[in-house]
Amino acid sequence: MSEQNNPTENSLGRLVLSSSPHQNSNDDVKKIMRGVVLALLPAVVFSVYYFGLRSMLVIMTAIAACLVTEFLLKKLRNKKINEGSAVVTGLLLAMTLPPSIHLGYVVLGSVFAIGIGKEIFGGLGNNIFNPALLGRAFLQASFPVKMTTWTPTKLMVLDAKTFATPLGGFKFGENIIHNFSDYWNGLIMGNIGGCIGETSAAAIALGGFYLIVKRWSDWRIPVSYLLSVFVLGGIFWLINPAQYPDPVFHLFSGGLMLGAFFMATDMVTSPETKLGSWIFGIGCGFFLVLIRLFGGLPEGVMYSILLMNAITPLINRFTQPTVFGEVVK
């Protein structure tokens, strides 16, 4: 029971006594969590369309594993599950996994995401890193080969059983994106190899817009993230178009859309001030381009966001608003 709504006996029966305010925006954490799940549905539908029911299996496994882990850990501390954030963590984690991954790894990643990513800090609200990304980082570090074995989508006519992602292709010398129709079919509509949720930029963006319209995510983060990737990627492309990919390719490839709209905007691990959000997004963009172009990995969304998560408390501190009526120090 919270301190509010403490019923008191009186002549009228029971009148509620509580401290002001007595009106509320009627938005709550549960609603937000449901909203995020809803916003991810288009991407889920696309993944099933491209990779078959196998991707659904991965998603369900991750959600179930996250719920069970959270339930057990809360039980250990005598607390109850309330907000349903484990569903979101599981769903987001599954979105970052290859569809063909062994389900054992999915469970392992989920346990790590909830256990080490969230509950060890005291549960939702106290975690430093985005739990889903931390779960993926754990899997990537422990089983790098399993995590980067991509299957082509069902609509691709290819002989090979495995397949390079566009970003991997770029990095390791077999560029597969050549013209506009490659862009359209591949990157924007999602008919490419990749993780469950990072194929269709359009489906992800659709969900992302929904969250922004509902005020459930801060538009400043995806805008500054995408813009800084575009600008920074564009500068390198202008310097040497033969060596570096063009900025549009940057935007629509890999997990950037998923990262920008669903991972970086995680309220708990992103700054609370408006200025902080801009800094956070630009920082993510900077690290992403750095990793993509000069790092040892083809993709940098995960690490760019985790790095910025780590310095979020610092950003909060430096962007704390000046109290009304006080002189700027």
């Binding site: 919270s2 509010q4 709504n5 509320n24 709550d28 954490v29 549960k30 937000i32 309330n82 907000e83 005291g122 549960g123 939702l124 609200g125 106290n126 801060d218 309220m267 708990v268 700054p271 609370e272 001030t273 902080g276």
Partner: peptide
């Protein structure tokens, strides 16, 4: 309505 209290999610 009764409003259940959750932990702060630092939404800002």
């Amino acid at each position: 309505p009764y409003r259940e209290e959750f932990t702060c999610i630092v939404c800002g």
